[in-house]
Computed example of a mutant assay.
Amino acid sequence: MVEYETLKLIWWVLIGVLLIGFVITDGFDIGTANLLPVIGKTNNDRRIMINAIAPHWDGNQVWLITAGGALFAAWPMVYATAFSGFYWAMILTLFALLIRPMALDYRAKIDNPRWRSACDWGLFTSGAVPSLIFGVAFGNLFQGFGFEFDELMRSHFSDSFFDLLNPFGLLCGVISLTMISMQGASWQALRSGAPVQERAAKMARLLAVVTIITFAIAGVWVAGMPGFEITSAIDPNAAATPLSKTVTVVESGRWISNYSEYPWTLIAPVLGFSGSVGVLLLATTRFHVLTFISSSLAQAGIIMTAGFSLFPFVMPSSSMPSASLTVWDAVSSHLTLGIMTIIAFIFVPLVLAYTSWCFYKMWGRVHGEDIAKNTHAY
């Protein structure tokens, strides 16, 4: 069987891949919802936008469900600690996501402008709320959460939901909202016809500028903020024993130290910036496929930047640093990870192949004439 240390690294990578897959695919669904009141000037425009994501949105959401399941199976302590400590944030996100299928499915059932407007604002809420909360959560990882473990390894939180809404957390929320909206705008420029296509292309350029600026500000901020560092020997092949290590708080520079120790990790922020620049340069040209690819690379780069910066920490603790959960000590057993790895290497390629086939079969641009003929579509 593969070494325990290697399996831990494999699952750190796989969970990252699932999060990136979610942001790239469901990101254009959520981004479209965020932009619905901005780009969709008329009911026909909004129907074009909705039908551009209609064939894929439910399948794309599976990436988030799979990531949650993988988190539960591979990092049960992280899952339990996060979900118990931030129950209200999770519930708010869940209820926001639940609005989307109802708003999509029932929007066209009643021919009433007020009803359609209510569904459209419901879709906007279903996109904006998760976008913000995901970013705020990632921002707070760099600052640490206020939790600790007792002698029975039960977690106790001192932070509340409103403690998450600090300046750096909100900045990361803005980055998340902007980059996901950029993904939605790039998708609409690729899949929608006029006049939505032109508006989406211009919006993608604007969002790319905001993403570049806020991502750069966050990078400078992270470089100067306190970070966490493991200062005792830790056995990467040991079982889940988070309290067996010593963690100290370093005044500054910790969250960028991995880039000097492992220079190849610089590919992440480079992708984040270059992908956004690609959107800025390509969005208003005819190269809409390249624009969407650039936006997708930006999503992947920004997520990887967060992961590489935090490594090996998964969920740091600000109130009890030695209780911080890491890649090495917050995982399932060797046997569990081994079985999960076999399953993942069989089914992840199948899921990717099936998803690619679905996109291939349902490809095409949504035009206003087609929407006008079919009054019973979304």
Rank of each mutant, 00 (worst) to 15 (best):
F22N: 13
F22I: 08
D26A: 14
G27A: 12
G27M: 06
D29L: 07
D29W: 14
I30H: 12
I30R: 09
G31C: 05
G31Y: 06
G31V: 13
A33G: 12
P37L: 03
P37K: 00
I39T: 14
G40Y: 08
G40R: 01
K41H: 02
N44Y: 04
D45C: 04
D45N: 15
R47C: 04
R47G: 04
I48R: 01
M49N: 11
A52R: 13
I53A: 05
P55I: 10
H56G: 11
G59L: 07
Q61N: 15
V62D: 05
L64S: 02
I65G: 04
I65H: 05
I65P: 01
T66Y: 07
T66Q: 02
G68E: 03
G68C: 02
F72Y: 12
A73C: 14
A73K: 05
A74E: 00
A74V: 15
A74C: 12
W75C: 00
W75Q: 04
M77L: 14
M77N: 08
M77R: 13
Y79A: 04
T81M: 02
S84M: 07
G85C: 09
F86T: 00
W88G: 05
M90D: 07
I91V: 14
L92W: 03
T93R: 05
L94M: 14
L94K: 01
L94Q: 07
A96E: 09
L98S: 05
R100V: 11
P101Q: 07
L104Q: 04
L104P: 03
L104A: 02
R107P: 02
A108W: 12
A108K: 13
I110M: 13
D111I: 07
D111T: 13
N112I: 00
P113A: 09
R114A: 12
W115Q: 01
W115M: 11
R116F: 03
R116L: 06
S117C: 00
A118V: 08
C119Q: 10
D120Y: 01
D120A: 05
L123V: 09
F124D: 00
T125P: 04
S126C: 09
S126A: 15
G127N: 09
P130A: 06
P130I: 12
I133N: 09
F134M: 15
G135S: 10
V136L: 11
F138A: 15
N140M: 10
F142E: 05
F142C: 05
Q143K: 15
Q143E: 13
G144V: 10
F147T: 05
E148K: 04
D150K: 08
E151N: 11
M153R: 02
M153P: 06
S155N: 03
F161P: 07
F161C: 03
F161E: 04
